[in-house]
Design a protein around this nucleic acid. Sequence first.
RNA 1: CGGGGCGUAGCUCAGCUUGGUAGAGCGCUAGCUUUGGGAGCUAGAUGUCGCACGUUCGAAUCGUGUCGCCCCGACCA
Length: 505
Amino acid sequence: MSKDKPAIEPLRSEDFPEWYQQVLTAADMAENSEVRGCMVVKPWGYGLWEQIQRHLDTLFKETGHENAYFPLFIPLSYLQKEADHVEGFAKECAVVTHHRLEADGDGKLVPGGPLTEPLIVRPTSETIIGAAFSRWVESYRDLPLLINQWANVVRWELRPRLFLRTAEFLWQEGHTAHETEAEARAETEQMLKVYQQFASEYLALPVLVGEKSENERFPGAVQTLCIEAMVQDRKAVQAGTSHFLGQNFAKASGIQFLSRENKQEHAYTTSWGVSTRLIGTLIMAHGDDNGVVIPPRVAPSQIVIIPVIPKEKFREDVMNACESFAAELKTVKWHDDRIRVKIDSRDQPGGAKNWHWIKKGIPIRIEIGPRDIEAGTVFVGRRDQSPKDKKSFAKDDFISEVSSMLTDIQEILYQRAFEFRETHTREIDSKEEFYKFFTSKNSSKPEIHGGFALAHWDGSSEVEEQIKSDLKVTIRCIPFERSESGICPFSGNPSRQRVVWAKSY
RNA sequence: CGGGGCGUAGCUCAGCUUGGUAGAGCGCUAGCUUUGGGAGCUAGAUGUCGCACGUUCGAAUCGUGUCGCCCCGACCA
């Protein structure tokens, strides 16, 4: 086997979707289940989710939210209360119509006991949480109500993809109710900022922030804000959304309160969420031809120690040295957390273990063998560098440098993703150039092309829909940071600002 | 729901045209040798050939039906 052979076949540049599948398999993060569209999340993938959960949960609590839990099943009638909401979700709902199984004549089980009202499995919880809020809110003194739930939801997707779009997925959904429109809008913006901060500081993902166009808005929302990331095939991923729902859901669910003026009023509500899609985004943004690359702040383990045992007689000494070095590393703190260290004591050749952890994307690998013990050194490989770029450190030097090394890796990953996005973002002022930008040279097997186009737009859905049907390109967001005004290259009408166009997942 | 493709070992697949009783590589298990860049040798285990019916002395192979999966569209966090 050649020394420079990458671990993943095919390369990203050859077949990005297939590369993504192979990376997930190689990193042992998740697999498709026997139920179409559903995934089994394996420990390394779930460990990443746990880190995401833990940090986000802290950020939610710091901004005053509390966790609660609401039912998986929603009465069908609830979904019908908000007209746009039904239309948005009706086509992808799992419906429960019976409550038991009965044996038929052939010994097969068939559904029995039809329900008087069918239940849907939540695709999102606005309606059922709204019903709870309507009971909880009576006075302006009960507001604001700031609730989050960690849950699974089901959207019966026709084209699933591990982590990016699965029929069942894990997420958090924040739901809040407020006395005034201004307060609810401030909440919507605040949570978007939390997502932006989380994406950049923890996931090392630069994201664009802005507003969705009406076409792309959450069904039932007045305003949808979003964070959008670019991944390495230059497509956009909507990585998180925060919605200002106005009084739409309050009216649908009857969330009313007596105001300071002693009047019955409807509350203003918000909802906001991120999902296991963040994992898919992270993999597609940072992964390379050797597999997953996990930013240290969310890595389930940040360091793996690989014992090198050339002869059986060394085993005990090497294992002891690994244990004691691991213990020492675990006393080091980074970002208020103990460093997460794992020893790979499996009975396998060192080279195989090295590649195993490279594919999983662990930030730092440390080899310790008899020569290191004698010299008081450790042999260190970083996931942001080439697999063969390994360096020897005196043990104590490594201990004192490990924090800054983790910081360095975190920052380099962010910087690479940022530069990638910048390289593939372009201001475009003519229709012709725009169409060229988003058209691949080889239509039967499209090469990686396009990116983010910053172009003027007259604000009409006609233009949006034309471009969507021509190119499968949509407006990903209308940035908060406004550009100069100009002319829409598609209609010739005036445009208030440039918007971000891209193909998306 | 439209268009294309595929169901054979845990995985990737060959065998099917021309019917004769099940194969390869990888993985797995054991032993020995190995281990600082993805180990080698030897010996093993693993299958209702998606399912049903039919043709036949005989079906993975031929026919009919059926179920499932994948890809491309429409829908979408």
